[in-house]
Simulated assay, not measured.
Amino acid sequence: MRLQKLKVCLLLFRMTFSVSAFTFGGGYIAIPMMRKNFVHKLKLISEQELLDMAAIAQSTPGAIAVNIAVLVGYRLAGITGAIVSCVGTVLPPIVIISVVSMFYQAFRDSTIVSAILKGMEAGVAAVIVDLVIDMGQVILKEKNLLLTLLPFFVFIANFIFNVNALFIILISAILCVIQTYIKSKQGGTFG
């Protein structure tokens, strides 16, 4: 049994390290990569579990990529898996930032590096749009009116009326808790 857990921990480290090392743009970019590896390729967790973990990761303090890696690690190998996943996720940025800081002046003035970063911005935007579409399809499949309409109203509140994001998060959380409470009282399923 210990050998199996060691294999899972090594797999977690390798996967979280590679996702962290080769994704630029933050946690929202890491989520599709984790889905590709942990859900589709390795089939270690389900699509719904990853969606739930993404929701939890977004609502907890800290970097989303680290939070979701810790949740996946904990789900697959307990506390040890969470620690291994955390280390695997934070190690690449620490190394990259250390190298960049050593050569900061050269990076700052390089037109080639500036052009590469501009190109990466376009790629990050495309991946985020893909993630929004995929997550939107999962929400629509649930046929939950609140979850279907909430993103639209959140966008309107923030983009048009400039409502503070913290207030939007609190109101959204309260609405979802109320909906869950009502469904549980009616004997329905959660969701």
Rank of each mutant, 00 (worst) to 15 (best):
M1G: 11
L10V: 01
S20Q: 07
A21L: 00
F22M: 01
G25A: 05
I31Q: 08
M34K: 10
V39T: 11
L44A: 04
I45K: 05
E47H: 11
L50S: 00
L51W: 09
D52E: 10
A55D: 09
A57V: 01
Q58W: 09
S59G: 10
S59K: 10
P61K: 03
A63D: 04
A63Y: 04
N67T: 05
L71F: 08
Y74H: 15
I79P: 05
T80R: 15
I83V: 14
I83C: 10
S85K: 02
S85L: 08
C86Q: 10
P92L: 04
P93S: 06
I97T: 05
V100L: 09
M102T: 15
Y104H: 09
A106C: 05
D109P: 06
T111K: 02
T111I: 03
S114H: 14
S114G: 10
A122R: 00
A122Y: 07
G123I: 06
V127C: 01
I128H: 06
D130W: 12
D130G: 15
L131Q: 05
V138D: 14
N144G: 06
L146E: 04
L147T: 08
L147G: 10
T148R: 06
L149Y: 06
L149N: 12
F152C: 11
F153R: 01
V154C: 07
I156R: 15
A157I: 00
N162F: 06
I169H: 14
L175A: 07
V177G: 05
Q179E: 13
Y181P: 06
K185L: 09
Q186R: 07
Q186V: 04
Q186G: 00
G191S: 15
